[in-house]
Design a binder for these strands. Sequence first.
DNA 1: AAGCTTCCCAACCGCTCTACG
DNA 2: GCGTAGAGCGGTTGGGAAGCT
Length: 292
Amino acid sequence: MGVQLQEKTKPKYRKGLWSPEEDNKLRNYILNHGHGCWSSVPIKAGLQRNGKSCRLRWINYLRPGLKRGVFSKHEEDTIMTLHHMLGNKWSQISQHLPGRTDNEIKNYWHSYLKKKVLKPHEMEPHSQTQHASSSSDTKDSSLSTQKLSIQDPNYGILENMEKSTPQYSDHHLSQNYNLAKDTSQSSLPKLLFAEWLSVEHVNAGGSSVNSEDSLVNGFDQTSTFQEPVMNMSGGHFGEEFHDSLIHNSATAMYNSQLNLPGQGDENDYVHYIQGGDLCSNFTLSIDSIMYV
DNA sequence: AAGCTTCCCAACCGCTCTACG
DNA sequence: GCGTAGAGCGGTTGGGAAGCT
């Protein structure tokens, strides 16, 4: 009886944190075969997990193109705006933040933005110069500093390497973050939109990005980050928000000193964005420049 | 130095929705 | 129409790291 009952019980699935070996198994399987039916993935991949757990791990951690790291001011603003409009529709909000998962946004909301909404008068002064920090206490300040050190445009795909081989990330970061450091006195996390530009265009613009960096694990991260493209007509957002996006993007581009044809002042960049020339010429979406 | 507290975030849980037989 | 399985979503939890006393 007892034995029969035991035999009928569901198989014991492993729970808790994923090991690097499990990550590798899952990643390799999905990259080679696709996920298909999630319930069959752990069996075929040789994992002692249930399909749901595999799906979550892939979506929130292993999926190529994930950004991770500190949320930028624009991401933060986007979350605040969309949350005001949509409520706790994290999956919908995440659709407007490429490289961010709903879980990540949800966590960020509960750990930081919610407090910011509740206590705007206390949080505001810090948001001007330290929006990456979760609060004004010392722990969060130090945390933000720590997190800024790993704010890599390719961090999403380098994260595993960074965790297992810190020396790699140190080297990599020192190579690629001079610009981010130089362009911001304010310790704001910045994701340069050069990340989404083709290598030729980036190099032509005076920025140096190793072409190999955009091809990791056989994935073209550049193209990965270009989708989904935000509705430029403003259909997703109010007109005011849309205009501010355009303006902020133009300002960011101006500050980044890209060599765009006919560049002059920030207004030229606004025209590029609004006219669509930028997107067609530089394979750039409005989503990507939001992160500058 | 050690114990306690706080916070972050990865992961789990439970629910709803959809597709299919 | 009903039952079942799979997928997706949002709420919640718990481990661990960091700060505090």
